[in-house]
Design a protein around this nucleic acid. Structure first.
Lengths: 329, 329
DNA sequence: TTGTAAGCGTTATCAC
DNA sequence: GTGATAACGCTTACAA
């Protein structure tokens, strides 16, 4: 009767190598140990196929080499890329990654955080929308794109500058009456600054603009656009949209109403989405530096120091020409 | 001096409630306990904000309520959706999910599996390409889309039938000379059956067809197509592609060469990709039942019984019309 | 430098 | 039904 696949423990390794338990532990934790011992231990470990049990270690040390990420969804160009980049970056630091999805539902977000806390994660990277968010368990927490009231660091694109760039670009491309269209959660977040930057540039440069805001959802936005066009009050020649997705929706509606993009109206979105199938930009857009966002988030969480972490880190964005402006080849 | 945020343990709860440690454990594990005790324990737990420590529990029980998923990448329409569905499904069973990405690199795959084994995951759901894959650690393992040599269950779309459906549909839509184009890893996998089903239908129904295979990559495939068109040997009026992505690539090349889709050539892909921005099908396609794939994979892993799990589970596919066939409105 | 032993927070076994 | 007590696999003072 075979030994029934028993998973070898440190004790087994110690016995096999003929050394004390503590010595084995030291070898696996990089503490100095007599060379001959180290070799014996390593050989014994290899022979037995030993791997340290992270659960036992985690229990003892309260560190688990595990980070959790919390996303509204995965099946989405921006979120999937961000998720992938974060996982890759953590992996390169030898960390495992828990992933949860919340649907932007505060209840689900809270539940995730509880679960994650229970799993003794070393930290949380979250893109969350809970206005009442409260970091239970005192775990290092980094937020992406959503700034909490000073309680934890937020990593985000430089949304403000992005808004300015968009306005400037539209103007440079000949637009004289601009519109900023946004939808999104009513919760104030970093992304609101896209609009503020846009406004600021328009005001500073005395460019005429309007803002159209659909708090609830995209349908409402489309509805408003249609009304304006049908009323004849739609006289814009440049639109900045808070996301690429919104841009596409609006463009399709404008097309349907006989307005051509970019001939009649030029449009710039936000995200820098690339079409998966063609590799081309979905639209003209302000590109978010996703890889960097991920790298910085991971770095911040791994070097977390509650005293000394900055509360907001903005990463630079840039304009990418696409098929919705006249500078597209 | 405050108690420095000490996380309460079962012992604390027991003390607070004035009961024995074992009683608290029973309450939290649903074992029968005197009603008055249960109430005292629950109140004490709430008061202290106690949550059971999954690491300690995992160490004791060797179950962690954690599943790992291993994907080639996340930033991809099919994989991101699959990943999200699996996470959601696991979450609904109160499981946490580790996610790793491997880039289809066998070395990375092996590394992931090692890490995962070390973290004492309760099971692995993987979409892997390692021909020499070997399930170390004897962890329940479910493969998606890739059948190993009988060693573990594989969940997949009914690729064979999908191929048949595609051939039949093209024929129904008037195509008389068909082509099957595939790229992909040289490792034999479930997806190869797409071609077999296609061939089978053509043979059974005496429809003329060819197969073009680019083992290495997409560029090579595009090259071959171009050659055929330039040679004048391209006389197909219906193409079945092993993935939607490949379809788009080929379509773009054909367009460039002056061939119109679907007027001159009709095309059907595989995956059922929906354009994220418009919500419309990217192309005519055989749809994979992603949610179901996820559900079944999770179910299989959670009810794993090495004796009794089927080695292959095929889920039904269906044809979805899109802009690359003439039945598209 | 090496070995010993005391926990870490749970669960499971047994007497009571 | 309840409550001591011994593991689980590992780290870490501390003693040798």
């Amino acid at each position: 009767m075979k030994n029934k696949e028993r998973i070898p423990t440190m004790k087994d390794v110690a016995a096999e190598a003929g050394v004390a338990l503590g010595t084995v532990s030291k070898v696996f934790n990089g503490f100095p140990v007599g060379e001959s011992y180290r070799i014996r231990v390593e050989q014994a470990a290899k022979k037995l196929g030993y791997r340290v049990n992270n659960y036992a270690r985690g229990m003892r040390t309260n560190r688990t080499n595990t980070i959790s990420i919390i996303m509204p969804m995965i099946c989405h160009p921006f979120f999937s890329k961000l998720t992938e980049c974060i996982i890759r970056e953590l992996d390169s630091h030898n960390y495992n990654t828990f992933v949860s999805v919340t649907d932007r539902n505060p209840k689900a977000e809270a539940r995730c955080i509880r679960m994650v806390a229970q799993n003794k994660t070393d930290g949380i990277i979250a893109l969350t929308y809970d206005p009442d968010f409260n970091n239970i368990g005192n775990i290092p927490f980094v937020s992406i794109d959503r700034s909490f009231t000073g309680s934890c660091p937020c990593i985000t694109s430089d949304n403000y500058t992005g808004g300015q760039i968009a306005a400037a670009k539209l103007h440079e491309l000949g637009c004289r009456k601009l519109l900023y269209a946004r939808t999104g959660s009513p919760v104030p977040g970093e992304t609101d600054k896209r609009g503020y930057g846009f406004e600021n540039w328009c005001q500073t440069n005395s460019v005429s603009y309007d803002i159209i805001n659909a708090k609830v959802d995209n349908d409402q936005m489309i509805e408003k656009i249609r009304e304006m066009v049908e009323n004849g009050t739609f006289d814009y020649d440049g639109i900045f949209c808070s996301t690429d997705l919104l841009l596409i929706l609006i463009r399709n509606e404008l097309n349907r109403l006989g307005i051509r993009i970019p001939e009649d109206v030029q449009m710039i979105g936000f995200d820098g989405s690339i079409d998966f199938y063609t590799g081309l930009p979905v639209c003209s857009s302000i590109e978010q530096p996703i890889e960097q966002l991920a790298k910085v988030a991971v770095n911040t969480i791994l070097n977390y120091d509650s005293e000394n972490t900055p509360s907001l880190i903005c990463l630079p964005v840039r304009y990418i020409p696409g098929p919705t402006t006249k500078d597209w080849i």
